[in-house]
Design a protein around this nucleic acid. Structure first.
Length: 347
DNA sequence: AGAGAGAATCTCTATCTACG
DNA sequence: CGTAGATAGAGATTCTCTCT
């Protein structure tokens, strides 16, 4: 059955490939792009081509680089973000590509919305969005990338397609924004003040709700209470100490139990760094070599002695009666046990 | 030093829509 | 009705900034 299906698919794919090799299909949108680039290249101007995904960036770059009508005219380069799955660039690579574009090495830059904001190239005189429409802010910002005088802005998409409709809606919203900005100085002062007051009240109410939710979360933890358990190295699973040793001050979680330091490696710096209320003295490492946090002293609480400020992402916990380790990405995400807060001393 | 907030830049996923 | 493709929004990751 599998073999039959495989053979059928293979035959069909070969037929499709043969058909397109003999009669290459012309994508009207690609053809429009080629003609636009050609026209601008003949005018010796530089431009941006914006697409939606990194995959399109690289594919379009390869296509344009080898297009017979564009050879010796269009010299494209491309840029994407740093953590793309398909193609990614380091900051150094990104800067190198931009330099190619700023100089005379390349005259077309193909990119995702990475360059939609912030990129300022005075000689960039046109922006082409290839099947890529975001919101009205994106439209305004991408158009703003063309800084040269008499610059042009294009959207390549099908007539009355969703992208075409979205772009038209963006334009309507943009017009509305401009109207509102122009109208603002002419508004009735009393009416405007009432509007601002109502908006401010609604914002404050939102913040109050957030605070109440935070309080609720704290109450939940208090109800959960402190639990017995152990603290382990996230990398090597080694037991580092008891959960009861853990204390907190504001957002810093620390251990100052002497026994903790016997099971870890504390490397002191030659020079100490002084922050507002703590003195950073070095680094505390697990025996596997992974850093667990900083070796510190609270300047205003010298009686606590040396402590280790634990990095949440380097450790995990095992609660008594539970077989599995638990981990948190941030201390504030802890919803499993309460931690003793460091009592402030009265001055 | 640590933490968290926020921004930037994708990637993933749930939902919607069109089609056979 | 089931499936595939499109889309919006959520989530993940990384970086920068500010505060303690």
């Amino acid at each position: 059955m599998d073999d039959t299906l495989y053979e059928r698919c293979r035959t069909e794919l070969e037929d499709i490939l043969k058909k397109y090799t003999e009669h290459p299909a012309v994508n009207p949108k690609l053809e429009s792009l080629v003609q636009l680039l050609k026209r601008h290249a003949l005018g010796a101007t530089k431009g941006l081509v914006l697409v939606k995904t990194t995959f399109y960036v690289k594919t379009l770059h390869d296509y344009l680089s080898t297009h017979p009508e564009l050879i010796n005219l269009v010299k494209p380069t491309w840029i994407v973000g740093q953590n793309s799955a398909d193609h990614s660039l380091t900051i150094h690579d990104q800067e190198a590509k931009l330099q190619q574009f700023r100089g005379n090495e390349c005259n077309v830059l193909i990119a995702t919305d990475i360059v939609q904001e912030g990129l300022d190239i005075p000689t960039c005189s046109y922006v082409i969005r290839y099947e890529f429409v975001s919101d009205e802010i994106g439209t305004i910002q991408s158009r703003g990338r063309a800084r040269a005088q008499n610059s042009s802005y294009y959207l390549i998409t099908e007539q009355d397609s969703i992208n075409h409709i979205r772009e038209k809606n963006n334009k309507t919203r943009e017009d509305y924004m401009e109207e509102t900005i122009a109208e603002w100085p002419r508004l009735n002062k009393e009416k405007f003040r009432n509007y601002v007051e109502a908006k401010t009240k609604s914002l404050i109410k939102g913040w109050e709700t957030d605070l109440q939710n935070e309080q609720k979360q704290r109450n939940v933890l208090r109800q959960v209470g402190r639990k017995d358990g152990a603290i382990h190295c996230r990398k090597c699973n080694a037991k580092l100490g008891e959960l009861s040793w853990l204390k907190k001050r504001n957002t810093t979680y620390f251990i100052n139990n002497a026994e903790f330091f016997t099971g870890t490696e504390c490397k002191l710096d030659k020079t100490y760094t002084n922050f507002q209320e703590n003195l950073v003295m070095g680094e505390v490492k697990c025996t596997c070599g992974d850093s667990l946090g900083g070796c510190q002293k609270f300047m205003d609480r010298p009686e606590l002695g040396t402590l280790c400020a634990l990095k949440c992402k380097q450790i995990k916990f095992k609660l008594v009666g539970e077989p599995n380790y638990i981990e948190f990405a941030q201390w504030s995400k802890n919803n499993r046990f309460d931690v003793e807060e460091l009592q402030e001393i009265d001055n």
